[in-house]
C-alpha cells in the first residue's frame, strides 16, 4: 500500500477520493462509488455543473465573509451538511462516531442514517455537534413511532424521510398519514428527501413536509434520471417560497455549492466525500473534507462579490446548453 499522504497535502475532494481508493478494499470502495445501471446519472450529476458558469460581481466590500444561515430556526455555520449514508463502521472502526466528531470540528451538521453501524443512542451520547436522523417510509407504524421517539430523545434536530430508495429496490409509496402523525409525535421538523419533480415537492409540502431535499441519491437509484442540480430550479419554483430546499448528489467543489445556492437551495449535503475522508483518515478526514469545500465556497463567494448567503441570487449563474 502506498504511503498515506499527510492531510495538508490534499487540496481538493477528488484527491481525498483518490486516497480512499488506495486505502479501501476495491469492492468496498466500489460500493461507495457505484451508481445505478450504466452510471449515466452518476456522470450527469457532475457534468451538469460544467454547463453552469458564475457571473462574478466586483468592487463589493467582501472583508467580512459570513457563510452562516438559518434552517427552520436553527443556526448553521455554513450551508454544507453531511448526507445520511449507512453502516460507516465498514469504512472505519469508529464509524459514525468519527464522522460526527470530524463534522463537529468543522461545525457541520450530520444526518445519521436509519441504518448506522453503531446504535443511535451510543452515537448521541458521544456527539458534540448537531445531528439529524433519517427515517424510512416502509417501517411498520409501531416501529416508526418508536424510531421517531428514539431520534427525538437522542436529540435529533430534524428528521429526514428518504423516499423512493431502499437497497437495490424501490421503497413502497410514502404513507402520508404517517407523515401527519410525525408532526404530532415530535417537535423536530420533518424533511422529505429524494424529490426531483416539482409536482412531488408540492404534494410533499401539502402533506406536511417542512423541508424538501432534492436528490437522486448520488445516481444510485434510477439510471437516466436528471442531475439533481438540473431538477433544482423547478422544485424551488414550486415550493421555495413556502419551505426550505436542500440538495445533494454530485457536489464536490465550493463552486458547485454556490451554484445550488444561486438557484435557490438553502443548503447542500455531501454523501460520498465525507466517507472518503472517514475511510482514509477517520474523524480528521471528515473534518478535512468539510473544511476544504467550506473554504472553496467562501473563496468563490468572495470572488463573486457575495459576502454572505443573503447576497446570493439567481443572477449569479448562467445556464448554458453545453
Amino acid at each position: 500500500m502506498s504511503r498515506l499522504p499527510p492531510l495538508e497535502e490534499l487540496v481538493n475532494l477528488f484527491e481525498v477520493e483518490e486516497v480512499a481508493r488506495q486505502r479501501l478494499a476495491p469492492e468496498l470502495f466500489e460500493s461507495i462509488a457505484a451508481g445505478a445501471g450504466a452510471g449515466l446519472t452518476l456522470g450527469r450529476n457532475r457534468e451538469a455543473f460544467d454547463r453552469i458558469t458564475l457571473r462574478p460581481r466586483v468592487l463589493v466590500d467582501v472583508r467580512a465573509m459570513d457563510l452562516g444561515t438559518q434552517l427552520l430556526g436553527r443556526k448553521l455555520e455554513t450551508p454544507i451538511l453531511v448526507a445520511p449514508t449507512s453502516r460507516q463502521t465498514l469504512l472505519h472502526p469508529e464509524g459514525e462516531l468519527a464522522t460526527l466528531r470530524g463534522a463537529a470540528a468543522a461545525k457541520a451538521t450530520v444526518v445519521l442514517s436509519s441504518r448506522p453501524g453503531i446504535p443511535l443512542e451510543r452515537i448521541a451520547a458521544q456527539a458534540r455537534g448537531a445531528f439529524w436522523c433519517q427515517l424510512e417510509p416502509e417501517t411498520g407504524a409501531g416501529e416508526f413511532r418508536q424510531l421517531v421517539r428514539r431520534a427525538t430523545d437522542a436529540g435529533a434536530q430534524a428528521l429526514c424521510l428518504s423516499a423512493g430508495w431502499r437497497g437495490e429496490k424501490p421503497a413502497p409509496p410514502v404513507d402520508w398519514t404517517l407523515v401527519a402523525r410525525v408532526r404530532e409525535w415530535t417537535p423536530a421538523p420533518l424533511w422529505i428527501k429524494g424529490i426531483l419533480a416539482p409536482g412531488e415537492a408540492r404534494t410533499a409540502v401539502e402533506k406536511g413536509a417542512q423541508g424538501i431535499i432534492v436528490s437522486n441519491y448520488g445516481g444510485r437509484l434510477v439510471d437516466g434520471a436528471m442531475a439533481a442540480i438540473e431538477a433544482l430550479p423547478a422544485v424551488v419554483e414550486a415550493v421555495g417560497r413556502h419551505v426550505p430546499v436542500l440538495i445533494d448528489s454530485g457536489f464536490r467543489r465550493g463552486t458547485d455549492v454556490l451554484k445550488a445556492l444561486a438557484l435557490g437551495a438553502n443548503g447542500v449535503m455531501l454523501g460520498r466525500p465525507p466517507l472518503w475522508g472517514l475511510a482514509a483518515y477517520g474523524a480528521e478526514g471528515v473534518q478535512k473534507v468539510l473544511e476544504l469545500i467550506q473554504t472553496e465556497l467562501a473563496l468563490a463567494m468572495g470572488l463573486c462579490g457575495k459576502p454572505n448567503l443573503a447576497a446570493i441570487d439567481r443572477s449569479l449563474v448562467k445556464i448554458h446548453k453545453r
Binding site: 495538508e8 466586483v58 468592487l59 466590500d61 467582501v62 457563510l67 455555520e77 467550506q294 465556497l297
Partner: peptide
C-alpha cells in the same frame, strides 16, 4: 506549510485576503 495566520478568525474556512475592501469608492 500553511498554518492559520495569527489573528485570523477561528472560522472553519480560512481565506487569504488580497483586495477584499476594493469598492467603487476606491
Amino acid at each position: 506549510r500553511s498554518r492559520r495566520q495569527a489573528g485570523a478568525p477561528p472560522a472553519p474556512y480560512r481565506l487569504q485576503p488580497q483586495n477584499p475592501d476594493l469598492s467603487w469608492k476606491t
